[in-house]
Amino acid sequence: MSLLKVTNLTKEFGTFTALDRISFEVKSGEVFGFIGPNGAGKSTTIRVLLGILKASKGEVKIFNKDAWDDAVEIHKRIAYVPGDVNLWPNLTGGEVIDLFAKLNGTVNKARRDEFIKRFNLDPTKKCRTYSKGNRQKVALIAAFCSDADFYILDEPTSGLDPLMENIFQECVLDIKRQGKSVLLSSHILSEVEKLCDRVCIIRQGKIIETGSLNELRHLTRAHMLVQTKQPITGLDELTGIHEIDHKEQGVSFQVDTEQIDLVIRHISQFGIVKLESAPPTLEDLFMRHYEGTEGTGVGGVK
Rank of each mutant, 00 (worst) to 15 (best):
V226A: 09
S268Y: 12
L4T: 14
I208Y: 09
K27A: 11
A67K: 09
Y80C: 07
I35Q: 05
K206A: 12
R198H: 07
C145N: 12
D149M: 06
I232P: 02
T210I: 15
R135P: 00
S56N: 10
E95Q: 15
L87R: 04
F286R: 04
K76D: 04
K27Q: 15
E165D: 10
L225Y: 10
T17P: 11
F100T: 00
L282E: 09
G41Q: 02
W68K: 09
E258K: 13
V273W: 09
Q249P: 03
R21Y: 12
D98F: 07
L140Y: 06
L275S: 10
R198S: 08
H242I: 08
I260G: 04
E12G: 06
D236Y: 03
I152W: 09
E25N: 14
F286G: 01
H289S: 09
G205H: 00
H218T: 03
I97G: 00
I267F: 11
R118L: 11
P123Y: 12
E73A: 11
R111F: 05
G83W: 03
L163Q: 15
A278K: 15
K180G: 02
N64Y: 01
E114D: 07
L121N: 00
G33C: 02
K176P: 03
K176I: 00
S131K: 14
V6N: 05
G133K: 13
K109H: 04
N38K: 01
L87N: 01
L262C: 13
K102P: 02
I62F: 06
I207Q: 02
E59D: 09
P123R: 03
I78T: 09
T10N: 13
E209L: 13
G159C: 08
P162V: 04
S268V: 11
V182N: 01
A79V: 04
G51M: 06
K229I: 08
R265P: 00
D197V: 07
E291T: 13
N166T: 15
I272H: 12
G159S: 07
K274Q: 13
D84E: 15
T15E: 14
L153M: 08
P162K: 10
C200T: 11
L4V: 15
F34C: 10
I201D: 05
T281C: 02
A40P: 00
R111W: 06
D113P: 01
C127Y: 03
A139Q: 02
S277E: 13
F32N: 00
Q230D: 14
T7Y: 04
N8V: 09
R47N: 14
M287K: 11
L91P: 03
D284M: 08
P37Y: 00
E165W: 04
W88Y: 15
L282D: 08
I188A: 13
R112P: 01
V26A: 10
Y151M: 09
F63D: 03
M287P: 09
A139T: 04
K61R: 14
S23A: 01
I167V: 15
L50K: 05
K247Q: 15
E155L: 04
M164S: 11
I208K: 12
V263H: 11
S158R: 00
E193A: 07
V96W: 00
D147C: 06
S56C: 08
L87Q: 10
H289G: 01
A79T: 03
I241D: 08
K42M: 05
S158G: 02
S158E: 10
A110N: 09
A143N: 05
I141S: 01
L49D: 01
T233F: 12
A55H: 04
G58M: 08
S43E: 04
K132D: 08
I260E: 10
I141L: 03
